[in-house]
Simulated assay, not measured.
Amino acid sequence: MSEEPILAVEGLTIDIPMAQGTLHAVRGIDFELNRGETLCIVGESGSGKSLTSLAVMGLLPKRLECTARKLAFCGTELQGLPPSAMRQLRGNRMAMIFQEPMTSLNPAYTIGDQLAEALLLHRRVGKAEARTRAVELLGKVGITAAESRLSQYPHQLSGGLRQRVMIAMALMCEPELVIADEPTTALDVTIQAQILRLLVDLQREMNMAMILVTHDLGVVARVADKVAVMYAGEVVEQGTAREIFENPSHPYTQGLLRCIPVPGRTKPGEHLGSIPGIVPSLIGKVEGCAFRTRCDLAESACAKPIPIHETEGGHSWRCIHSHMDRMPA
């Protein structure tokens, strides 16, 4: 019998009521994540990546309408779970590293108080034990003089240190699932590489499942086991990282890959690819393939319901074109 997935999502839909109509921000997405795996959700800004993460954590604003056929963590259906039960999971067995650490950390509380809070809420420990755990994790995430940092406030730390504090905070209760929402966006390139290496090392050490939300395919290539490519609220392609990079089957995925240089193949000064046009509005009725206005392979059939192709290995893509008739990447 196969192991039950840590996270199973089927038909997740998020609608946002607006004055002009309903904005269909996330449209019926499916994915699964197993223990120890890293799933990278990749796509342009506005594709629904962060909303998907917030839906899993139960942190969507109340005015948003969220439904799913299944939204289960370790077999527990999260939809309709009482707020008290959700609070027992959130920060304990499932945790999130937010995109901007300066706005995610509370400027009025010390680093030590914010780190200890989760452990004091979810474990029967005293303040001294929580403080010891905080120092241990700050050291594990590469912060020197960890004990002295506990009395500091967020504004006294650099961006890279604040992000490391956020990672330590997420790991205080040794969660089974960690969601990292573009955790390196505001950092310079060198610090980005350090943070990513740190996340991967900690994930392997603790055997956690991790969802990494990003728009950077270079990051995806380095850390992902599975990849879900999102466009205009839909998962248009998903599979293992090897399948996505070696055999991209959706025109949007192919376009994304043409936009990044390939070591050893892209010559200095050579022009990189680009995807023309803009993401269409998702307000009101959305039919057919949302990418068709930007796609070189678009046909009249693209305005109709789009089939999903799937290989035996689980590589799937949403397009009228199959492997046999698609344009090579």
Results as ranks from 00 to 15, higher is better:
85 A>I: 10
110 T>A: 01
115 L>G: 02
194 Q>T: 06
94 M>H: 02
158 S>H: 14
122 H>I: 05
125 V>H: 11
86 M>N: 12
182 E>L: 01
138 L>R: 00
172 M>C: 10
115 L>F: 11
71 L>F: 03
193 A>T: 05
99 Q>C: 06
155 H>V: 07
194 Q>P: 00
145 A>Q: 15
164 R>K: 12
108 A>S: 15
162 R>G: 09
185 T>Y: 00
193 A>D: 03
188 D>I: 04
164 R>G: 07
152 Q>V: 06
197 R>G: 15
133 R>W: 10
185 T>H: 01
91 G>T: 06
83 P>H: 08
139 G>T: 07
135 V>C: 10
176 E>Y: 08
153 Y>A: 11
149 R>Q: 14
179 I>L: 09
177 L>C: 06
190 T>W: 05
127 K>V: 12
93 R>C: 03
166 M>S: 15
86 M>S: 10
113 D>T: 14
100 E>F: 06
96 M>S: 04
151 S>L: 15
169 M>R: 14
117 E>V: 09
144 T>I: 12
172 M>F: 08
157 L>T: 12
117 E>N: 05
88 Q>S: 12
145 A>T: 13
118 A>W: 01
122 H>W: 08
108 A>F: 14
153 Y>M: 06
82 P>V: 11
118 A>R: 00
154 P>R: 11
174 E>V: 13
188 D>L: 03
103 T>K: 05
185 T>K: 00
189 V>H: 02
110 T>L: 01
125 V>F: 06
182 E>Q: 05
180 A>F: 03
196 L>Y: 01
174 E>W: 04
103 T>V: 11
196 L>E: 00
173 C>H: 05
191 I>F: 13
113 D>V: 14
71 L>G: 05
115 L>H: 02
118 A>N: 03
112 G>D: 11
152 Q>Y: 14
181 D>T: 02
144 T>V: 15
84 S>G: 06
114 Q>T: 02
149 R>P: 03
88 Q>P: 00
173 C>K: 07
113 D>N: 14
148 S>N: 14
127 K>D: 09
188 D>H: 05
125 V>N: 02
101 P>L: 09
114 Q>C: 00
190 T>Q: 10
181 D>W: 00
92 N>T: 08
196 L>S: 02
77 E>F: 00
82 P>Y: 09
119 L>H: 07
85 A>P: 07
180 A>H: 04
180 A>T: 02
108 A>M: 13
93 R>F: 05
78 L>S: 05
171 L>N: 09
134 A>Y: 08
173 C>D: 02
77 E>K: 01
152 Q>H: 15
103 T>Q: 04
112 G>A: 05
134 A>R: 08
179 I>E: 04
94 M>L: 14
169 M>Y: 04
174 E>K: 14
157 L>R: 13
76 T>S: 15
165 V>P: 07
134 A>C: 07
158 S>R: 13
122 H>A: 10
97 I>Y: 03
100 E>Y: 01
189 V>L: 09
146 A>I: 10
128 A>W: 09
105 L>D: 02
162 R>D: 07
135 V>P: 02
